[in-house]
């Protein structure tokens, strides 16, 4: 049983697709967009922020290199706005936080939350799964059956997964 999601480390946008408005409190902006479904959001954000210039990136990889390039010259007032499927935005948000960006400098929109990344605490591999919070999935690496726990690591950008029946002793009796 999971507690109410707002009492956990799982952001609401990681549970259901969610598109917040553009952050009008910033002065300069970069948008990192993943996938076709993000284009509608990009257009809405760019329109809302006009006439402020917005750098729009469509990263082919994780977007970390694009973010680092913008970050190198960014001044306080800059906002990073991420939009795309959950796995991509969680990964790039983790990178942005690790680089010292604050939560109130990052806007995250999800176009899809059907796939989530789960880190196996036993072998440290990540499994991308359709299993929801409180359900189980098989670790792609060690094969253990993992419970998808109601915790998202901010700096790892993954859900926590651990062996669902770890407390059951199955050794020699």
């Amino acid at each position: 049983m999971s507690p109410p999601i707002e009492l956990t480390s799982v952001p609401s946008w990681a549970v259901a697709p969610s598109v917040p408005p553009a952050d009008l409190t910033g002065t300069t902006f970069s948008v990192f967009a993943f996938g076709d479904a993000a284009e509608q959001v990009v257009d809405a954000w760019v329109g809302a922020l006009a006439p402020s210039p917005v750098a729009v990136h469509h990263p082919s990889g994780t977007g970390a290199a694009d973010l680092d390039a913008d970050l190198a010259t960014a001044r306080v007032g800059w906002r990073a706005m991420l939009v795309g499927p959950l796995v991509e935005v969680l990964t790039l948000r983790a990178h942005a936080l690790a680089k010292g960006l604050a939560d109130d400098e990052i806007v995250v929109a999800t176009t899809s939350t059907s796939l989530r990344p789960v880190r196996c605490v036993h072998c440290a591999a990540d499994t991308v799964t359709t299993a929801g919070i409180g359900e189980t999935t098989t670790c792609v690496c060690c094969g253990l059956e993992l419970l998808v726990y109601h915790h998202v690591s901010r700096l790892q950008g993954v859900f926590l997964g651990f062996q669902v029946d770890a407390e059951r002793w199955e050794g020699p009796t």
Binding site: T25, G26, T28, V76, G77, R79, D103, D104, E105
Partner: peptide, 10 residues
């Protein structure tokens, strides 16, 4: 600061 885009956390 706010007018220049500084977020509260800074």
């Amino acid at each position: 600061a706010t007018a220049l885009g500084w977020p509260p956390s800074r």
